[in-house]
Design a protein around this nucleic acid. Structure first.
Lengths: 311, 311
DNA sequence: ACCGTCCGCTAAACCGGTTTAGCGTCCTGT
DNA sequence: ACAGGACGCTAAACCGGTTTAGCGGACGGT
């Protein structure tokens, strides 16, 4: 422990200087009505003159509140911020936490363990992004008993959840392409969170939607027409280049994320493929970003605001 | 205070159950070498069986460490996340904090007061984005004595700082346009942080760079050719539409941010202006995003990584 | 057999606030 | 004049860990 006893002015210092008790100082700030107006303001004067600032951690400990909520993500933050979808989501969460005077802490797997990171987090509540009920870390820690909101995951044991109609949106997107006459379609999924079970969660639901539309049209989605790059622009670009270089020539791409869709678009440009004449691209999420490329089809994304109900 | 004494298992509970003292339990986790191997593992077993998890806040209080670093931004988080530049920056910071096992807390003005928010923040250090030395809140709190790194701000009294050569980059951009023969150029700045002094900080330095190039070419930048929208795609779009609708017809736009440049591009599309035939657009920051629109000129942006030296 | 160490663990102080219980004192009603 | 109460403030417990000082027993050396 550092010998930081010097320098920092504690509540005790202020109390001594003002000739009152620690309690009085505390009251002066938190419940001024319990002190005479005169005393309260005098204490505050002394405190300010001494440059007193309450230690946030100590306040947390005794009051039991952190006035901070966390955003829980199963992916590394580096990846997370690279995904434009996330920025939009964070924007939504941030605007409401900010309004309520809460801080925003990002929680991601620290040394490979999400649970460990969660334990270290000083948070009153959590917004979990794309976490499966059966996620190994998740179940074991039971969210540490914290109030939580699950996003893009099925509701679960008392926790609120918010999710979009992934399946329906996906069906719409697929029907759109099929309606244009496309038959050779590449499906670009998104990488599974931690290498656990695929075909569950967001990606699974959207895939189900795609399959459903194809089935209706009497078609089938062959496994080698499905790739799962990371949900970033770079990921989408690389994946499409890979597919193209192995000789596949789909006439359309069905992306589960606008980020990968943008990547495909970039790849197409590099390959001198004209969009949409030679290749149709459909995205997902309706990020503002997509308005500035070549308008892909989209489903709206309302959870960004919706989750505000937790606060 | 809530009667939460039930439910949560404290260190005392574990100690009682294991028949040892609180200290022993603490040692079992933090310095196992001070206990016999047998005892230590037994204690850990008991702890796990009881579902014990150390209270992070308490640990912080006594150990004096929060293992969390904060990103300080003078703007509301809603605005911040809307800026793609920020996402890139956060990505850089995140990757290094994550590697070192630190959490990431976003600090923004809470009830209009950045200082207040900073006081509430439980953080070991701070990365401040575009904060001026003479920023009112800033000077008064003296960064609360926290170690800090300033980004896009001049170094100051012992705090490390990292900044790019804004002026040089801006000069390059302007020269590029002038070299293309443009004479009627619109400068799109970025909104000042909190309505304080303009012509300082990043925007000021870049503007100086622009001016310098124009001066060399024997030209001058007229004030009505400078706008300062928020640094977002929407901001840029709206600003350009406004300029256009008031009858101005610049042949080029010099943007201080790739976000606004993208917005201008969108506006041009809506107005059926061909880019770059009828209008040249130059951005700043070199976001990956820009590769997928119409390649604007750029200056690199290295601070994202550089700031890792703080940890 | 005796003294000195080291080992394994415990008791208690501490971090910096918040909160409860309670103690004088002055005011008020009758 | 005196009981009752409200007011203003203080002492001390408390939140849940970490850390220092120290205690008792076993072991080793001579």
């Amino acid at each position: 422990m550092a010998k930081a006893s010097d320098q920092r002015v504690g509540i005790a210092d202020v109390a001594r200087e003002a000739g009152v008790s620690k309690s009085a100082v505390s009251f002066a700030f938190n419940s001024p009505d319990r002190l005479s107006a005169e005393t309260a303001s005098r204490i505050r004067d002394v405190a300010e003159r001494m440059g007193y600032r309450p230690h946030p951690v100590a306040r947390m400990l005794s009051s039991g509140q952190t006035t901070t909520i966390g955003i829980l993500s199963p992916q590394a933050l580096g990846q997370v911020f690279a995904n434009p979808f996330f920025a939009l989501f964070a924007e939504g969460v941030a605007s409401v936490t900010e309004e309520h005077g809460f801080g925003l802490l990002f929680i991601s797997p620290l040394h490979g363990s999400l649970a460990g990171a969660l334990d270290r987090a000083t948070v009153d509540g959590v917004v979990a992004l794309g976490l499966d009920e059966r996620h190994p870390e998740m179940g074991s820690i039971r969210l540490a008993g914290l109030p939580a909101v699950l996003v893009d995951s099925p509701a679960w044991s008392g926790h609120r959840a918010v999710l979009v109609d992934d399946e329906g949106g996906a069906r719409l997107a697929a029907e759109h392409l099929l309606g244009l006459g496309h038959r050779d379609v590449l499906v670009m999924g998104i990488e599974a969170a931690v290498g656990d079970t695929d075909d569950e969660g967001v990606a699974g639901r959207r895939l189900t939607g795609y399959r459903s539309s194809f089935a209706t049209a009497g078609l089938e989605l062959s496994p080698d027409r499905i790739v799962r790059p990371p949900a970033t622009i770079e990921g989408g670009e690389a994946a499409f280049l890979r597919v193209w270089s192995r000789g596949d020539r789909p006439t359309a791409v069905l992306c589960m994320s606008d980020a990968t869709a943008t990547g495909v678009l970039a790849a197409a440009r590099r390959l001198s493929i004209r969009v949409p004449e030679e290749l149709s691209i459909v995205g997902f999420d309706d990020l503002p970003l997509t308005r500035f490329t070549d308008p892909p089809l989209t489903t709206v994304h309302q959870p960004v605001r919706r989750k505000g109900e937790v606060a």
